[in-house]
Design a protein around this nucleic acid. Structure first.
Lengths: 391, 391
DNA sequence: TTGATAACTCAATCGACTTGAGTTTTTATG
DNA sequence: CATAAAAACTCAAGTCGATTGAGTTATCAA
């Protein structure tokens, strides 16, 4: 499914321009407002080049002029900012039981979120549903179709047939398909496909706690537990697109080694509760139980702390991220509780004096993170210089 | 020590050319011999552009013409190959007790390897020793100094003050220093600094089992256990250059959770043997014990298998590499034994039908891997297109 | 023998960045 | 308050490097 880059492409004038557009957009994005001269200094481009690129971006509607700023002597700089309405992205999350749609603007604001239950998951049927929901969403968000920059699609990983494939719960009919090009043709849009954790990581980068981070990990609570890895602004996907399958790692727990996601995940919590006669099928119910300080849930949290701490230590030492973000389909209170209850290893490369970000953060994107992240993939791509790869 | 990229640089004609030179070199390297037209097709450049670049590379001595190849009709292609003598790299490994030097040619062949015991490790003293050994090595390898492309330096990680810093065993005087620029000035060469595992990973890419791989992990047996991560030809260094500190991960073992490198590392084996009255301080002694089927060593290997298997599973599921390479200061027989004794989890993203590389490989670079890898960093850099970053 | 095919070269063109001179606006200074 | 320094920006020319298209050469197949 996920072809890997075996050859890197050469550069030419056109590809330089496209790279430089991204560089400029990225700089504007992270500065908020910024003048040409400052961009030129930061990027090593001449002010003239920046001027030309900005003129183009303004003409395309991606940037807008936004005031002046005087910094001491000299002509005050004309500032530019992102035009949130300059482009939009469609996010699609396909689950075995439901279809979720999100529309984001360039600034990462969610303009519309839709959800629909799926009875069948055949690609053709799902595709017609996506098209319907897309149209509904665009109407409600008042977004003209031609301003859609692309679509991101989240499918349950892992991709390809691997030892983790567990076809019962997943989307067997989709595994054989080159989803990106299949959907691109039918939606008439560029399409990017990712797993939930990677998408969620991008949601936080585009409009969440990771806005100013370039290297971080995102622990995604879905059915199981996934990890999205961002290194230097780009997703680390591994050789086959399946990096981050942390849920199956064995970690030490209170009663010996356990599979991480058997100890720390929403399903794990629900099973723990069910065995004690407490049934919580929705996130809302879990949240209520947490607020009511349900003793069984507390017990589960207490038992989850140790394996969770080991997972955090493992991620820190293997990946040396700026921070680890927690999010996904788990009530915020519970995520915060996990963060508070973790034993942060002193024996970690992340235990450093000069850090300016907490070692753990809770994400902001809430339960629709994956669909939102799917759209964020598209937006992030516009802002992140790529090494052009593959054919 | 390791400044991180906060801004990506813009492209211009000159930087495009430098990118394209790397792209062409990389293609020649992995094809062995190749003609202009094929490079053009593979990279998306015009044949004319490839011609110009090749002319430049030939003039610089990096490529040589190497025969013709006829593929059916049409003019047979003039083939080009790397000129191994077109450039050389110096590799330096600085350990608390010794200094190791390696000189590689462009093809990754080692022309000279030197080792010297260090009594003191003050930067000034070490620097003079490096200069001396460099001169000796260049003389013995008959390499003119002006053909040195740069120097790679391996220092014991982790970099910066972290929870893993264990200053007793390391090089405290070096921690405060910006080693790369400090040495660059004194050696009058571009200098790159990495930890041992990352360097070792590059050694295998430049002239070992990873020649044709782009995404893999390297488990490095030094004093402890480190992990070098290569994703899409580039080292994954984490936010602070300390990614891959796997040795401190807690993994399940035969008697409960253990620190991985307490179970699987050269020091672990030596301690195990010492407790049983067998003293093996050198790699050679370990190798002899292994060949003699020493029961204590066998017992250690048996006990190491489980934690090692967990580590492998963890790496596979977190990073989805093409393969995991084992190497470093551990006798080959023992590495092979570990590879044979590992229980490869079926429950892994690496368990896939379409793989064409074994899940585990032993590296080829032997005990001087890190110094050799240091030099390989320089060579790899010439071949690997970079996203230009930072100021 | 002849034509198709492929690799390669030459010369012209083009796109995008850089350079340097000049304009405008603001602030600091005497 | 006048003036000079400083900074942002624009204009026009120059340069670098890739592309394009026509032309040459060598090989193979019919």
């Amino acid at each position: 499914m996920t072809a890997r880059s075996d050859t890197v492409r050469g550069a030419n004038a056109g590809r330089s321009r496209s790279h430089n557009r991204r560089v400029v957009l990225d700089k504007v994005r992270d500065a908020g407002k910024i003048g040409r001269a400052e961009i030129a200094r930061a990027t090593g481009l001449s002010t003239q080049a920046v001027s030309n690129i900005i003129a183009e971006l303004v003409a395309d509607g991606l940037l807008v002029e936004d005031g002046r700023r005087s910094a001491g002597r000299g002509l005050p700089a004309l500032l530019y900012a992102l035009n949130p309405k300059g482009g939009f992205a469609l996010g699609v999350e396909i689950r075995p039981d439901a279809l979720l749609i999100s529309v984001l603007d360039l600034a990462g604001q969610e303009l519309c979120a839709l959800r629909e239950t799926l009875d069948t998951t055949s690609p053709d049927w799902v595709c017609t549903r996506i098209r319907d929901l897309r149209d509904t969403a665009l109407r409600s968000a008042r977004v003209p179709a031609q301003k859609l920059l692309g679509a991101g699609v989240v499918l349950p990983g892992p991709f390809g047939t691997t030892g983790l494939s567990d076809s019962a719960s997943e989307l067997p009919e989709w595994q054989q398909l080159d989803v990106a090009s299949w959907l691109a043709e039918r939606l008439d849009l560029p399409v990017m496909v990712e797993n939930d954790a990677n998408a969620a990581a991008m949601a936080e980068r585009v409009a969440g706690v990771a806005r100013e981070l370039h290297t971080y990990a995102y622990l995604y609570f879905g059915a199981g537990l996934g990890l999205g890895l961002v290194q230097d602004r780009r997703l680390m996907r591994g050789a086959f697109g399946n990096a981050g399958e942390i849920g199956h790692a064995m970690v030490p727990g209170p009663d010996g080694a356990v599979v991480l996601e058997h100890a720390v995940s929403r399903v794990a919590a629900q099973k723990h509760l069910a065995r004690r006669g407490v049934h919580a099928t929705t996130g809302g119910q879990l949240e209520t139980l947490y607020r009511e300080a349900n003793p069984h849930l507390r017990q589960w949290l207490d038992r989850a702390a140790e394996p969770f701490s080991h997972a955090v230590a493992m991620i820190e030492n293997l990946l040396d991220p700026q921070t680890i973000i927690l999010g996904g389909a788990m009530p915020e209170g519970i995520l915060d509780h996990l963060i508070d209850s973790v034993t942060l290893s002193e024996h970690s490369v992340s235990n450093r004096a000069d850090r300016n970000v907490p070692r753990l953060l809770r994400g902001r994107s809430g339960p629709m993170t994956a669909a939102r992240g799917a759209a964020a993939l598209v937006i992030n791509q516009r802002f992140t210089p790529q090494i052009p790869a593959g054919h």
